[in-house]
């Protein structure tokens, strides 16, 4: 990692009543870095993710994007700063065509003609160019995920947050998605929340493991996946 971090979370905490879902988490991400967040169900990954995107307001702590405090900012404001977000359940415009979905994304900062060109480029990148005229609601689950990724790419964000991008995909689709993520990472920083260990192996360099609302370990992918503590957590044993 070189220079100032792109994204920095400091003491980020989320309490729901008496439950502390995320407990004073510090995380730092560099420019054009790829980071994977893993952890068992209920570890606080999704809550952490939702605080980054402004969908949840943290109980304590702060989030800095390029040194700018974005804690408590609204989701659309965070998106405008250059953060692209793909949610766990595909959030797409089901009644619109594939092209229109991506066009609406690109049109936020571009003229109609430029937006059309950028939308076409983004669709080519995810390999959906041939399906541009199709209604998104009629597509397969994996294809809809790619439409959503294309919409995010069309805005050319500095940071892309992907929540379980491989969920519900076939093996070939997972391989294709992992290639796509590595390609995206040439120019964009990414945070990927994922369950699928095979998928993690395909894409990851640095992995942050969440457990019970805290960071259990943050290290190189091979060391993390061979760590006894991580295995214990995934097998349901208490972490040492």
């Amino acid at each position: 990692m070189t220079g100032a971090p792109l994204l920095q979370a400091e003491g980020l905490t989320m309490r729901f009543g008496g439950v502390t879902a995320v407990d004073a988490v510090d995380l730092s991400l560099g420019e054009v870095e790829l980071r994977c967040l893993i952890g068992p169900n209920g570890a606080g990954k999704s809550t952490f993710f939702k605080m980054l995107t402004g969908q949840l307001q943290p109980s304590a702590g702060r989030i800095l994007f390029r040194g700018r405090d974005i804690t408590g900012a609204r989701t659309h404001e965070i998106a405008r700063l250059g953060v692209g977000i793909k949610t766990q359940v595909p959030n797409v415009f089901n009644g619109l065509s594939v092209a229109e979905n991506v066009f609406v994304a690109a049109a936020r900062t571009n003229s109609a003609a430029t937006a059309r060109r950028k939308a076409a480029q983004a669709l080519e990148r995810v390999g959906m160019g041939a399906l541009a005229g199709r209604i998104v609601g009629q597509l397969a689950h994996g294809q809809r995920q790619w439409v959503e990724i294309a919409a995010v790419l069309a805005q050319d964000p500095d940071l892309i947050l992907l929540d379980e991008p491989a969920a519900g995909m076939t093996h070939e689709e997972v391989v294709r998605t992992s290639e796509l993520i590595r390609e995206i990472n040439q120019v964009h920083a990414l945070i990927v929340v994922e369950h699928d260990m095979q998928f993690i192996r395909m894409i990851a360099r640095t992995v942050t493991v969440f457990n019970q609302g805290r960071i259990l370990i943050e290290d190189d992918v091979d060391r993390v996946l061979s760590s006894q503590a991580v295995r214990d957590v995934y097998l349901g044993k208490q972490a040492a």
Binding site: T53, H76, A79, I85, F93, L96, V104, A151
Partner: peptide, 24 residues
């Protein structure tokens, strides 16, 4: 117009429109 397209997009999925930086 662009405005109209965003309006329809918001009808289709408000969350997605927000995540793309539009204020529904």
């Amino acid at each position: 117009s662009r405005f109209g397209r965003v309006v329809v997009a918001i009808r289709e999925n408000e969350t997605r429109a927000t995540l793309l930086g539009y204020d529904p």
